[in-house]
Deep mutational scan, measured.
Amino acid sequence: HTVDVQGVTYHFDNPEEARKFAEEMAKRLGLQVHVKDGRYKVE
């Protein structure tokens, strides 16, 4: 499970961890979480 944050890619084994990380980063950076091709993108 992959999370892209402003061009940096993070990998997680656990989909729940990936989702939480994406939401946390989006909140911290004031950005949105998009799901695209099964990847989380924070932009």
Rank of each mutant, 00 (worst) to 15 (best):
H1S: 13
H1F: 12
H1W: 11
H1G: 10
H1N: 12
T2R: 09
T2D: 12
T2F: 15
V3M: 01
V3Q: 00
V3F: 00
V3C: 06
V3P: 00
V3W: 00
V3Y: 00
V3L: 01
V3E: 00
D4E: 14
D4K: 05
D4C: 08
D4N: 06
V5T: 03
V5E: 00
V5A: 06
V5F: 05
Q6F: 13
Q6V: 14
Q6W: 08
Q6S: 08
G7R: 04
G7M: 04
G7N: 08
G7C: 14
V8D: 09
V8N: 10
V8M: 11
T9Q: 11
T9C: 15
T9S: 12
Y10S: 05
Y10A: 04
Y10C: 10
H11C: 14
H11V: 13
H11I: 14
H11N: 11
H11T: 13
F12V: 02
F12I: 02
F12T: 01
D13P: 11
D13V: 10
N14Y: 10
N14W: 09
P15D: 15
P15Y: 05
P15W: 07
P15R: 13
E16D: 12
E16R: 09
E16T: 12
E16Y: 10
E17Q: 12
E17C: 15
E17P: 05
E17N: 11
A18C: 10
A18V: 02
A18E: 00
A18Q: 04
A18K: 01
A18D: 00
R19G: 06
R19E: 08
R19L: 13
R19A: 08
R19D: 03
R19C: 11
R19V: 06
R19F: 10
K20C: 15
K20R: 13
K20E: 13
K20N: 13
K20M: 13
F21N: 02
F21R: 01
F21A: 03
F21I: 02
A22Q: 00
A22F: 01
A22P: 00
A22K: 00
A22D: 00
A22I: 01
A22V: 02
A22L: 01
A22M: 01
A22S: 04
E23W: 14
E23K: 06
E23G: 06
E23C: 14
E23S: 07
E23N: 10
E23M: 11
E24D: 12
E24F: 11
E24H: 10
E24P: 00
M25S: 09
M25V: 09
M25Y: 06
M25A: 11
A26D: 01
A26Y: 01
A26Q: 02
A26G: 07
A26V: 01
A26F: 02
A26K: 01
K27E: 12
K27Q: 12
K27D: 09
K27I: 10
K27A: 13
K27H: 11
R28F: 08
R28V: 11
R28Q: 13
R28S: 10
L29T: 04
L29Y: 06
L29V: 02
L29W: 04
L29C: 07
L29I: 03
G30V: 03
G30A: 04
G30R: 05
G30L: 03
G30S: 05
G30M: 04
L31F: 08
L31T: 05
L31D: 02
L31V: 06
L31E: 03
Q32Y: 08
Q32S: 13
V33L: 07
V33H: 02
V33R: 00
V33K: 01
V33G: 01
V33I: 07
V33D: 01
H34Y: 08
H34V: 14
H34K: 11
H34S: 13
V35Y: 15
V35C: 14
V35S: 06
V35L: 12
V35E: 11
V35D: 05
V35A: 06
K36L: 09
K36Q: 13
K36S: 10
K36R: 12
K36M: 10
D37Q: 04
D37N: 11
D37L: 04
D37I: 01
D37G: 06
G38P: 03
G38Y: 03
G38A: 03
G38R: 04
G38I: 02
R39L: 07
R39A: 14
Y40A: 05
Y40V: 11
Y40G: 05
Y40P: 05
Y40L: 15
K41N: 12
K41P: 05
K41M: 15
K41H: 15
K41T: 15
V42A: 02
V42S: 02
V42Y: 02
E43N: 06
E43V: 09
E43K: 04
E43L: 07
